[in-house]
């Protein structure tokens, strides 16, 4: 990876408070005859940019990247297995979106240690991953995946909305790109929560069971620790998002005729590298090819 090349567009080496006002008009170069991919910040741009985060900010980006990477791996498992073809594509799209977020965060974090996104994704051991427990929880049935998505997308939406104001220009730029995508993930999860919760007796039962399964892992998302203190205004204080999270979830559950689970919280520990038994299996599957054939491209 060359550090001499500047990113051609959407460069994250912008001033501390980048102007995102034009972000929603990313298709300014569209022509009448050709569909273009549009302009948006890509993980490749971040990999090519020279910005080196401080150790604290790199560790913070690693957390956000690991959350998204593990979730992407989980969601990808639905491909070809979703209840309907259309839902297969929807979950696949969401998986690719969060994989993109993971690539951006990991590419940026890696600059602090001279590592690429692939080094970080494929060559770290279980205890080096910093994802919260919720992300590694099994897909379960469709309702469990939707319950996990409901929590994750609401949490990430609040997180990225605040991260727009980060004093770190790259984190702010990644958040700006991710926010629009997570906004859709949130809508997708809410629509399904309403339909399953207020659907048939069976779908209601499964959706309520799913919430009970997922809820113990909600608390960890909103825990502060020493790293959060250290990154200061470059990051977002998780505990500060909890109230808004609860206020956003409550009306959805009510409309869906579901009950907020009263379950004890899991201990958590993902931010310290302590994981549930599930992460090892996820990593084994995710890393096997890269480790068996180092440097392979396809």
């Amino acid at each position: 990876m060359s550090h001499e090349t500047h990113a051609t567009h959407g460069a994250p080496s912008a001033p501390a408070h980048p102007d995102h006002s034009l972000d929603s008009f990313g298709d300014a170069a569209a022509s009448a005859t050709r569909v273009t991919p549009g302009n948006a910040l890509r993980p490749e741009d971040i990999a090519l940019a020279k910005d080196v985060p401080s150790e604290e900010i790199a560790q913070y980006a690693l957390r956000l990247g690991d959350d998204s990477l593990i979730l992407a791996q989980r969601l990808s498992h639905w491909i070809s297995r979703a209840p309907e073809l259309e839902e297969d594509v929807a979950l696949g799209n969401i998986a690719l979106d969060v994989l993109g977020h993971a690539r951006s965060f990991l590419s940026y974090a890696g600059h602090a240690w001279g590592k690429t996104e692939d080094d970080l994704a494929y060559w770290r051991e279980e205890e080096e991953f910093r994802s919260a427990w919720l992300f590694e929880q099994p897909n379960g049935d469709f309702a469990v995946t939707i319950a996990r998505q409901l929590v994750v997308s609401a949490y990430q939406y609040l997180l990225y909305a605040r991260l727009l104001g980060s004093t770190d220009a790259t984190l702010a730029a990644i958040a700006a790109k991710a926010l629009k995508e997570v906004d859709y993930h949130r809508d997708h999860a809410i629509q399904w929560t309403l339909r399953l919760g207020d659907g048939t007796e069976e779908s209601h039962r499964r959706m309520q069971d799913a919430l009970e399964l997922v809820w113990p892992y909600v608390g960890e998302l909103f825990q502060d620790d020493a790293l959060i203190d250290a990154v200061g205004a470059a990051g977002v204080r998780p505990s500060g998002l909890r109230e808004e999270f609860d206020a956003g979830i409550a009306p959805v559950l009510e409309e869906a005729t579901l009950t907020l689970p009263a379950v004890p919280a899991a201990s958590g520990g993902g931010r310290r590298g302590e994981h549930t038994e599930h992460l090892g299996y996820i990593l084994a599957e995710m890393q096997v090819l890269a480790r068996k054939h180092p440097g392979a491209t396809w």
Partner: peptide, 8 residues
Amino acid sequence: RDLYTRRN
């Protein structure tokens, strides 16, 4: 949206 507008 997911099936027919994925490529902008």
